[in-house]
Amino acid sequence: MEDLSLHILDIAQNCIDAKASFIQIRINEDNERNELMLEIKDNGTGMDKQTLEIIRDPLGTTKKKKFGLGIPLFLQSAEESGGRIEIQSEINKGTAVKAYFQLDNIDMKPLGDVAKTLIILIGTNPAIDFYYLHKKNTDEFELDTRELKRQLDGIPINAPEVMTYIREQLEKWYAKQ
């Protein structure tokens, strides 16, 4: 993966596969602490202890389930740049993946186009709700599709004009960062 925004998309696809109805994505960039925290949390099916133990292993398998490369690649991106990943999961409650990165590490991957990742997640999964919060030092951008849907009152969130509006707002905020 070239950047962190592609990892976010990849991990969020796991949440969708886990039948999540609500996915939370939080980014906290803190230059003073030289840290970027990235959290992806869902209310999906969750994983049992056995799966959780092997999830970091690229060839891990629980026999019934096929293996995946999403978490191992994300882990590699974090560890290469002095970062770490914490995964918490509970059956029928959901999963939370939290990653910490050192902002000034020379091997730190760029954050990439998070706006693009979000637009795609919202646009192709209108039935799933997303909460997004990006904090950057003292500034922040917040988006909650539950609130948006209430305001839209029956208009689909993936209607072209709504998507254009969300895209513009995201791009506007990222342009001034």
């Binding site: 922040e140 951008f141 305001q151 839209l152 004009e161 509006y165 707002q169 995201l170």
Partner: peptide, 14 residues
Amino acid sequence: MGKLSIEDLAKIKE
């Protein structure tokens, strides 16, 4: 702070 405004959304809704 970036946030989507209620006024804009009302316009889009109409």
